[in-house]
Design a binder for these strands. Structure first.
Lengths: 230, 230
DNA sequence: GGCTGTGAAAGTGTTCACAGCC
DNA sequence: GGCTGTGAACACTTTCACAGCC
């Protein structure tokens, strides 16, 4: 009976955010229309994939012409929920935490950091952007006060789980975790794990493979030798 | 004729890096063996998936017992190429760049930042970790001097492409790009694009969806209304 | 009994090719 | 002619179930 409100795949959601950013730049340039080819190239994806992504929002282009930049922009913003401002807290004000808190891009994309927390008394009171760092003890109070549902964890790995537990208990339902530590959470809470060092590691692996492929003529009889040479 | 050196899927490579980190922690605890269940739980993945991942390296566990911690650790390190140290450069010493440069985890995983570069004269000369920030003009010299093949870009978006071009011209073949800007590179060069704000955006979307799902009884006749209400 | 290793199945995401419309 | 929208094919991952071994 339900024709379904059309589920949007997660991979698509991530790319929609990228398209929105590219459109913002394009919009500043005063462009009125853009083709899937052009948009895809600027976003670094395949044109057909981009069209499929956009089609999840329903038809939103004009055949033979392309996409109207302002209309598409508004549609994307609405689909992603950027229109309404969301209150976030950030726990762990090391270099990474400071980088994220100071990133100007967040404000325009619907995120406001209403709380910057740190366990180190030396850091409490510092001004990052226009927000003052508060002691981690205030966590529950900040979450309750602003009705925070999204949190960013940039603490050392050892304390990430306990911080996470406190966040969840206080009512946070969505967490981005940069600490190299898997978090366990109750059902209904989303965690996105981001491991910066893994990116480098994958590159190193690919790099190494390139080296191996440059010498494909050496054909060892023993397969384990190849694996070992990796 | 070739039984194939067994290609390892990229998704698996990324997880192998995580397993290696977990094992390092476990190894410090003096454990001699570990089951796929335990390792998977600590890494935040499915046990069957973990076993499949490890099976790409060939059999490396003991049935009925589990995996020998030191042996598995060494095998993973070899597969990922962590044993040999790799020279990297990092361009753009803002907060994010500093966070990455200061991350102690890299050293133990085979990465050494031999060059920290920035275009801002005010930042040149700063000491980050035990490396001095150099002017971005030195890029080609540093890459050539140390035979750098891996670079991390944490510059503003506007200059990311030109920095990338210089890196590639200098001989870099693998790039992690944190600037919100798609990079175009010649064939043979790998780019991994990391967009930190996209993670938050996806969470916001999921968060919003939860809210919608809490009121599933409202069954509007018009589908577009649902899409719009997003 | 317990746990690994792995084919087979299910699910997800990507690419292709072309019909449909301007 | 050009470009969107989309079903169908394809590729990639994940999950399941169980055979094989200690």
């Amino acid at each position: 009976m339900q024709p379904r409100p059309r589920m949007i795949p997660e991979a698509t959601v991530a790319r929609l955010a990228v398209y929105l950013r590219v459109l913002a730049g394009l919009s500043g340039g005063g462009r009125s229309h853009v083709s899937s080819q052009e948009l895809a190239s600027a976003a670094g994806v395949n044109p057909a994939g981009l069209r499929k992504d956009l089609s999840y929002l329903g038809p939103c282009g004009v055949r033979g012409v392309g996409y109207a930049v302002p209309a598409l922009r508004e549609r994307l913003a609405r689909a992603l929920g950027v229109e309404q401002q969301r209150a976030c807290v950030l726990v762990g004000m090391g270099n990474l935490g400071s980088a994220l808190a100071g990133y100007a891009g967040f404000g325009s994309r619907g995120f406001t950091f209403v709380g910057l927390l740190d366990a180190d008394p030396a850091r409490v009171g510092d001004l990052v952007g226009d927000t003052t760092v508060r002691p981690v003890e205030d966590l529950e109070a900040v979450v309750a006060e602003h009705g925070v549902t999204i949190a960013v964890v940039t603490t050392p790995a050892e304390v990430a789980q306990s911080v996470c537990d406190r966040l969840v208990a206080a009512g946070v339902r969505s967490i981005v975790n940069f600490a190299p530590q898997a978090l366990t959470v109750p059902a209904g809470v989303d965690v996105r794990q981001v491991d910066l060092s893994v990116e480098l590691q994958v590159l190193a692996f690919l790099d190494q493979q390139k080296g191996v492929q440059l010498v494909p003529d050496t054909l060892p009889t023993d397969l384990t030798a190849v694996a070992a040479a990796r």
